[in-house]
Amino acid sequence: MPAVKSSTDDDALMKAYVGPFAVFLGFTLLLQFLEPALGWDHPSAAWWQRDLKQWVYPLQAVSAGFLVWHWRKRVQWAWSWKWSLIGAVAGALGIACWLAPTLLADRLPVEEWFGRDSWQATALGLDARTEGFDPGLVFERGGAAWWMAYVMRFFRAVVVVAFVEELFWRGFLMRLMVNFDRPWTVPFGKHSWRAYWVTTLLFMSVHLPVDYLGAFVYGSLTYVLAVVSRSLGATVAMHAVANLLMGVAALAWNKPGLW
């Protein structure tokens, strides 16, 4: 695949690959300021005060998703059925590795071995993950708002996060680590050890500590897929399948802390 040429279009490419991620991250940071200012965890509080994530995350998903769609033609996706299917299989494998520790936590005497809330258990991902996203805390279970909250949650995780993160981590940052001055001259999937370590470790660092091990393994698999396939579309497919299975597992196993 030819490299993305460096030209006066550099700014346009930067917007397409980095802009959606920047907006997505901006909403995450905004939430940190809004929660102490507007949040009120009280039975008499309005739903939008009790759990700000129930409306900030949908706005985040729609805003970042719109930018992905708006700038989609500037991106070299290199879609193919072959590599999309391989990416889907890689996503299932990667998320299986991510989920394995929490399944082991249900079957092993973790507290007896390491003690309560130990750093060793956290580092290994051995946590039951029973606390996390639960719209039933603010909406009537089974009601329209409850269902919509889950629809938007899956839309955010499976569609928006898959595109936004792969555009940034593999589409931009990998290139930047190969050539700081002219990243857009670097073909997608160009291998360098600096690109691998920086991209994978930073991807790992934006997750919770209990997810570090799973994120490192998953990030490594995604890097390999990017290098072998030279297809950004394949890594998006991998991410989408992984997040879909993560959401299904969170609901099926009653582990809302997974997502």
Rank of each mutant, 00 (worst) to 15 (best):
D10S: 15
D11C: 01
Y17G: 00
A22Y: 07
V23H: 06
F27V: 03
L29C: 00
L29M: 12
L34P: 05
A37V: 08
H42A: 12
S44E: 13
D51K: 12
D51Q: 14
D51H: 06
W55G: 05
V56L: 13
Y57E: 10
V62D: 02
W69H: 04
Q76C: 00
A78M: 04
W83S: 05
L85S: 11
A90I: 14
L99E: 01
T102N: 02
V110I: 12
V110G: 12
E112I: 04
W113Y: 11
W113R: 07
G115C: 12
R116K: 14
R116V: 15
W119T: 07
Q120Y: 09
G125Y: 04
D127S: 13
A128Y: 12
E131D: 12
F133D: 02
P135R: 10
P135M: 08
P135Q: 09
G143T: 01
M148D: 05
R153E: 10
F154K: 10
R156M: 14
A162L: 08
V164W: 04
E165F: 13
E165G: 12
E166D: 07
W169Q: 10
R170Q: 11
G171I: 09
F172M: 11
L173C: 08
M174T: 14
R175P: 10
R175V: 08
D181Q: 14
P183T: 08
F188Q: 13
K190N: 06
S192M: 12
W193F: 13
Y196L: 15
T200H: 03
S205F: 14
S205T: 05
L213R: 05
F216K: 00
S220T: 15
L221H: 05
T222N: 07
A226Q: 03
A234P: 05
M238W: 03
M238T: 13
V241H: 07
A242G: 15
L244N: 10
L245K: 08
V248Q: 02
A252W: 12
P256H: 11
L258H: 04
L258F: 06
